Amino acid sequence: MKTLLVSLLLLFNLQECESNNQTNTVKEIPSEELAKYETAYFASGCFWCVEAIYESLEGVKEVVSGYSGGKEKNPTYQQVGSHKTGHTEAVEVYYDPTVISFATLVKVFYGSQDPTTVGQQPDFGDSYRSVIFYKNAEEKTIADAAKAAIAKDYKKPIVTEIVPFEKFWKAEDYHQNYEKLNPNQPYVRSVSIPRLNRFKAKFPELLKEGE
């Protein structure tokens, strides 16, 4: 009975990542200002969690939640959630390379998830898979080297995909800054915030002042 109750609670919490359309009240940074920064693209589970992790980093200006890795144009949250588009929930990270490097962003990527789980971070399905989208040969080399380096730390194989970046589609407005705007939402409270806090405890030296 206890196992059944735990399973039902987990299912409820995971499903919460698929609900609650709320209005975004955080002011967006103008595109001309963001153009000054480099971009990087990652996926490792629900983008609410991943966005909050990268937002906490010194040197990161902005993080946008969205979709990447599939062929569907202008995908919606419902389409991606159906696991039929090939897209995964991803984030677009705007960062200052004079403050934080792409290699450090990759370190954060691997250090804030379990890279041995297939489509489960902890959410289930291919739209939650672990992916680094590289834009050039240098990024691919860094990503491949990091993957090989951490392999010795796990008994199971690293399943992270390292694939060329093609296109990033911004998610609906209500997904942006979701964890910050909805701290009491059940999924955020039980999954996103604990995941963020585990990351902060692991990498305090990378955090913005006050995080």
Rank of each mutant, 00 (worst) to 15 (best):
K2H: 14
T3I: 11
T3H: 12
L5W: 12
V6N: 13
V6Q: 15
S7G: 13
L8S: 11
N13W: 11
L14C: 02
Q15A: 07
C17W: 00
N20F: 12
T23C: 09
N24F: 04
N24P: 04
V26A: 01
E28F: 04
K36A: 15
K36Q: 15
K36V: 12
Y37R: 08
E38Y: 06
T39W: 14
Y41E: 13
A43L: 02
S44R: 09
A52D: 01
I53V: 15
I53A: 08
Y54W: 13
L57H: 02
L57R: 09
E58H: 04
E62M: 02
V64H: 08
S65D: 01
G66A: 09
G66E: 06
G66Y: 00
G69K: 15
G69F: 11
K73M: 03
N74V: 11
N74Q: 11
P75I: 05
P75T: 03
Q78E: 12
V80P: 05
G81E: 10
G81L: 03
H83W: 02
H83L: 06
T85D: 06
E89A: 05
A90G: 05
A90C: 09
V91W: 02
V93P: 14
T98G: 13
L105H: 13
Y110C: 10
S112T: 09
P115H: 13
T116I: 01
V118C: 00
Q120F: 01
Q120W: 00
Q121K: 08
F124D: 03
G125N: 15
G125Q: 10
Y128K: 06
Y128T: 07
V131C: 10
I132Y: 00
I132H: 00
F133K: 08
I142Y: 11
I142N: 09
A143G: 10
A143P: 05
D144E: 15
D144G: 05
A145R: 12
A146K: 05
K147Q: 14
K147I: 01
A149W: 10
I150H: 07
A151C: 08
A151E: 11
Y154L: 06
Y154T: 01
P157A: 05
I158Y: 05
T160W: 02
E166Q: 13
K167L: 15
K167Y: 14
K167T: 15
F168K: 12
F168S: 14
A171T: 09
E172R: 04
E172S: 05
D173I: 04
H175M: 02
Q176C: 09
N184A: 06
P186N: 10
Y187W: 07
V188F: 00
S190V: 01
V191A: 00
S192W: 00
I193E: 03
P194V: 14
L196R: 07
K200T: 03
E211H: 05
